[in-house]
Amino acid sequence: MQVSVFDTYVTRTDGTLMHFDILVPSNVTCTDTIHQYGQTYLATKGQGGQPLTAKECQFCHIEQATEEVQTSITNQGFHIIEMQGCH
């Protein structure tokens, strides 16, 4: 499965920066859908409602999905890779 990777930076409610990637099937191109996936993830981190637009979330590249990523996408439609400030 090919996935699109969206590089995402969101300012947390405490002012620190969260950096994470949103991975979706490469045929998912609706930015509203991708941003909604990001909002779903942010809500799990207590950061629901933080701004998440094309300014914070930009297409980066397409790659081959690992089994873990494919399972996550099958279960919820997307996968998150936490990079910085997500814990």
Rank of each mutant, 00 (worst) to 15 (best):
M1D: 07
Q2P: 10
S4K: 03
S4P: 01
S4C: 04
D7Y: 10
T8A: 00
V10H: 00
V10F: 00
R12Q: 10
R12C: 06
D14N: 13
D14Y: 14
L17Y: 07
M18C: 09
M18R: 04
M18E: 05
M18K: 04
I22Q: 01
L23D: 01
V24T: 05
V24Y: 00
P25W: 01
S26N: 12
S26L: 14
N27W: 09
N27D: 08
V28S: 03
V28T: 08
T29V: 12
T29K: 08
T29H: 12
C30E: 13
C30D: 14
T31M: 04
T31K: 01
D32N: 13
D32G: 07
T33M: 01
H35L: 10
Q36R: 08
Y37L: 11
Y37S: 14
Y37F: 15
G38V: 05
G38E: 04
G38A: 07
Q39F: 06
Q39W: 06
Q39V: 10
T40K: 04
Y41M: 09
A43Q: 08
T44I: 13
T44A: 06
K45S: 12
G46R: 09
G46N: 08
Q47G: 06
G48T: 13
G48K: 14
G48W: 12
G49P: 08
Q50P: 02
Q50F: 03
P51I: 02
P51D: 01
P51T: 02
P51K: 01
P51M: 02
L52H: 11
L52T: 08
L52D: 08
L52I: 09
T53S: 05
A54R: 05
A54S: 13
K55L: 07
C57W: 02
F59D: 02
F59I: 06
C60P: 06
C60E: 11
H61D: 07
I62D: 15
Q64E: 15
Q64D: 11
A65S: 05
A65N: 02
T66H: 12
T66M: 12
E67M: 13
E67V: 14
E67D: 06
V69W: 01
Q70N: 10
Q70D: 12
T71G: 14
T71D: 14
S72F: 11
I73Y: 09
I73M: 10
T74N: 14
T74W: 07
Q76Y: 02
Q76I: 06
Q76V: 07
Q76N: 03
G77A: 04
I80F: 03
I80V: 08
I80K: 01
I81Y: 01
I81E: 03
E82Q: 12
E82S: 12
E82G: 08
M83N: 08
G85S: 04
H87G: 06
